[in-house]
Design a protein around this nucleic acid. Structure first.
Length: 880
DNA sequence: TAGAATCGTATTTTT
DNA sequence: TACGATTCTA
């Protein structure tokens, strides 16, 4: 095989010289199938990238012959980056992607084989739910009893196990024909029949709409490879080396996909060598169909397979590993495996039991402040993790009150926000007119007098002619019984779509122009701009961000198209939004344990260590699910490099009601001598067990002084807690004076609420401005500009699930936005009397301007929201 | 048809 | 609590 001149050739010494024995072996392995059992922190990405480089420079393969699959886009991007460092820029052109992206790529090229036409839509969960609801209405299914969610999850199960709708229909509803009307279910309680019918009808309508859902991407690709020998032959010939990361998280369909691509069952013998990397102890996606057996049975499944275990951990201290090992040992039927490290024992784990969630957050915030001030720990080296997103709230409040800058990963995704979805729906409907779900979504958005009646008239016309919604709409003159009052706005909508489609056709290479055109011509933007709801102001900004994302996409993909852009928006995930590990964002990171997989931080707080919270109450009954929770705990613990904290609250409010929480069983599973409890028992527990000698509990000192012992209810403390030392340290600046400390309890709470709703830009109350002015201002330039350009380069600037507080210097998620950390507004453009809108405070009038160059300040009267001084460069404002 | 008001019910994790 | 869905009213 001739070597690719573009690949930087690496010697064996360069590739394996600095690796340990098993690592080097894994890099060099030359057989047909290899399983790398990579414990947490054992350097698996390193081994994987080195192995790819080895295959290229030592085995002599071409870059195009390699397929590397990761679980997230972020992991793919990171692998590409590290590969580029090893072998040069060719890495960029390699197939290093997620399962889903790889499948999209295959289906875009060869999808006709399974009935997919050019420009097919990819439905996200919300789209799918809409579709299920529509079907439910048409078939008279009780959506109360059978929620779209539950139906979809069943359909997802079918697809993940490669069961097709025909099979289900034949078994449970042989009389049903997809697309038929007036079907009567045999017995009301025959759930299987219902699922079978729904599945069949759902697929029928997806096909009609030229759309696929997430699971279809895998399913259809398998179908394609199985039914089109020429296509299968093409890819089998093409890919000679297939590498799969996070193999423990693959589901059955993905497993079969790998088998098909590698030609494992081909009579001619396998065409590709398969390398899989994974850790069965880190399998945490069983609920989504991941099948742990895939990794457990690898050696039986792939002929002549070899297994290499990596057990030396380079990440954590022995104390942390001991805790992780101790916990995971409680899982039954697991291959024993012991991580070890050469890094030494390190610090003890710190434990803290708080009386309630607010106090847990308060203690954490205080501890972080201390770490930052006394030990010089960078905020960006700290992560706070929790089981469920809902827990982030109290933590956020605690951090805000203590003035700790943070970023939150997760929550409502950028692309799931209503206004963004609306805009995307337009784009989708432009690219794929058959897309009924998106077409119907935008029919009356913004309001144009087309309600349920108009919609159903068109829908019925479409059905009776067995055609798409758009097609019926396009021939609306032929629809019977249509009044002018309905027909007029309908035809205006038709004109709008036609004109947009024309524009899109003429500007296909410039998605950002199309986005702009859609935003303006549809009236989407106008409707929001006219509104005086302050929430709509942030919606406007989200839309402008969408345009920025499109512009960015354009930059990074010179030959990109509108449908290419839509693809990138469809397949983004939470963790994709995270800045690179080497980047100092200057912020503490908050995220769920699931999102944290694959990441590492010097300091990690594992919060909410309570029965019912973690392990989650729904998972406590079932042994299997409990095992998965335990693996999640294992993942969490092993994220920590140097110092692990475990915290819990005795009282936690879950949907309004405060509940008493017992300590998590996982805490008991960590050997006692590894944990240094700063506070072991909570006030209530202490009282319950009677007054005992204080000395029995080593360290509860500090907090007692602060709170006078213990408390029973959460509510009083919620507002009382913040009045502590950290409060005075940032307060007192002349800026943002409207919010005195006394108003915190109530007014803060509500403003925070609205910031959450208004999304990724939320929550820059005056108090954060204080902080900015007080401490961050002088040194923020460097940090800001470096992360700015980085984010741009990496192309990870899809703003969204990383929520960034303005307390901190960098705004790495929004490189191009008009109102990002540096919004490029010019003080000269503002005059006393001008009207502006602010993300948070709504409409306001300029009452003073101060030209101080980069630090120019605008004083704005926001009416009932008070008079604020805003730093122009940073203010999320727009001139009206 | 649109908007307001009320009501009821759900909250795990997500490619 | 917090959202979506339904119901009622203009």
């Amino acid at each position: 095989m001739q070597q690719d001149p573009e690949v930087i050739q690496r010697s064996p010494e360069e590739l394996t010289g600095d690796l340990n024995q098993p690592q080097a072996e894994a890099v060099r392995y030359a057989g047909p199938a290899l399983l790398i059992g990579a414990g947490a922190g054992s350097g698996k990405t390193r081994v994987l990238t080195r192995r790819i480089a080895w295959i290229l420079s030592q085995v002599g393969a071409w870059p195009s012959q390699i397929l590397a699959i990761t679980f997230t886009n972020k992991a793919a991007a990171e692998m590409k980056e590290r590969l580029a460092a090893l072998i040069g820029p060719v890495a960029d052109r390699m197939w290093v992607s997620t399962f889903h992206s790889a499948c999209v790529r295959i289906l875009r090229r060869d999808g006709e084989g399974v009935g997919l036409k050019n420009g097919f839509s990819i439905y996200d969960t919300a789209d799918c739910e809409r579709l299920i609801k529509l079907i439910g209405q048409d078939l008279n299914v009780d959506v109360k009893k059978f929620t779209p969610r539950s139906i979809l999850s069943r359909i997802s199960d079918y697809k993940n196990s490669l069961v097709d709708w025909k099979t289900q229909l034949a078994a449970f509803a042989p009389d049903y024909k997809p697309g038929q009307r007036g079907y009567r279910f045999g017995r009301i309680d025959n759930i299987e029949e219902l699922y079978a019918v729904m599945y069949a009808e759902y697929q029928y309508r997806l096909a009609m709409a030229n759309a696929v859902d997430f699971d279809d991407l895998i399913f259809k690709t398998v179908e394609l490879l199985r039914t089109q020998p020429d296509v299968a032959a093409y890819y089998r010939h093409k890919f000679r080396f297939i590498l799969v990361d996070e193999y423990q998280d693959t589901n059955h369909a993905q497993y079969i996909l790998i088998r098909e691509l590698a030609g494992v069952d081909d009579p001619a013998g396998p065409s590709a060598a398969v390398t899989v990397v994974g850790d069965s102890d880190q399998s945490i996606y069983a609920f989504r169909g991941a099948d742990i057996r895939n990794i457990q049975d690898f050696e039986q499944d792939f002929p002549n397979a070899r297994t290499i275990m990596l057990e030396q951990n380079y990440r954590s201290t022995q104390t942390i590993l001991d805790a992780a090992n101790a916990v995971i040992t409680h899982n039954e039927g697991r291959k024993p495996k012991k991580l070890w490290t050469a890094l030494g024992k390190g610090e003890k784990i710190t434990g803290y039991a708080a009386d309630n969630a607010a106090l847990e957050a308060h203690w954490i915030a205080g501890e972080i402040t201390r770490l930052h001030a006394e030990e010089g720990v960078r905020y960006s080296d700290i992560a706070i993790m929790y089981r469920a997103n809902a827990q982030s709230r109290s933590l956020e409040e605690g951090l805000i009150k203590a003035g700790v800058p943070y970023q939150l990963v997760g929550g409502t995704r950028f692309y799931e926000r209503r206004e963004v979805k609306d805009a995307i729906a337009y784009l989708q409907a432009i690219v794929n007119p058959a897309d009924n779900v998106n077409m119907r979504r935008i029919l009356n958005v913004p309001k144009r007098g087309l309600g349920a009646r108009a919609e159903s008239m068109v829908a019925m016309a479409a059905e009776s002619h067995n055609t798409t919604f758009w097609d019926a709409l396009d021939h609306l003159e032929q629809i019977e019984g249509m009044t002018a009052r309905t027909a007029n706005p309908l035809s205006r909508f038709r004109d709008l779509m036609n004109s947009l489609r024309q524009f899109a056709a003429a500007n296909d290479a410039h998605p950002s122009r199309i986005v702009a055109q859609v935003l303006h011509e549809s009236g989407l933007l106008e409707e929001l701009q006219k509104s005086d709801d302050p929430q709509d102001a942030s919606r406007v900004e989200n839309l402008s961000q969408l345009q920025s994302v499109a512009a960015e996409y354009e930059q990074h993909n010179p030959d990109g198209t509108l449908s290419g852009f839509l693809e990138t928006t469809a397949l983004v995930a939470d963790s994709d939004q995270l800045p690179g590990a080497d980047e100092d964002s200057g912020k503490v990171t908050l995220m769920t344990l699931h999102t944290a997989k694959g990441l590492e931080y010097p300091v990690v707080f594992l919060t909410g260590m309570e029965q019912g919270t973690f392990p989650h109450s729904r998972a406590m009954e079932d042994e299997k699910e409990l095992s998965e929770e335990r693996r999640l705990a294992y993942v969490g613990i092993t994220r920590a490099k140097r110092h692990l904290y475990v915290t819990r609250a005795a009282l936690r409010a879950q949907w309004g009601q405060a509940n008493e929480m017992l300590p998590s069983q996982f805490l008991d599973e960590i050997p006692d001598e590894l944990i240094d409890w700063k506070r072991r028992e909570t006030g209530m527990e202490r009282m319950r067990s009677g007054w005992r000698d204080d000395d029995e509990f080593g360290g509860w000192g500090d907090d007692d002084d602060e709170f006078g012992g213990f408390s029973f209810g959460g509510s009083t403390f919620g507002s009382a807690a913040p009045r502590t030392a950290s409060h005075s340290s940032y307060g007192g600046s002349s800026y943002g004076s409207s919010r005195g400390s006394s108003s915190y309890g109530s007014s803060y709470g509500s403003s925070h609420d609205s910031s959450r709703r208004s999304g990724s830009r939320g929550g820059h109350g005056s108090y954060q401005w204080n902080r900015r002015y007080g401490s961050d201002l002088s040194n923020d330039r460097g940090g800001y500009s470096s992360s700015h350009s980085r984010a741009g380069q990496a192309g990870s600037g899809h703003s969204g699930r990383v929520t960034t507080r303005r307390t901190s210097p960098s705004a790495n998620v929004k490189p191009v936005s008009a109102t990002g950390a540096d919004n490029h507004l010019d003080i000269a453009d503002f005059h006393v009397g001008d009207r502006i809108t602010h993300d948070k405070f709504g409409m306001g009038k300029v009452v003073d301007t101060q030209d101080k160059g980069r630090n120019s300040v605008l004083t704005v009267d926001f009416g009932s929201n008070g008079v604020k001084r805003l730093m122009l460069r940073l203010a999320p404002i727009e001139k009206l």
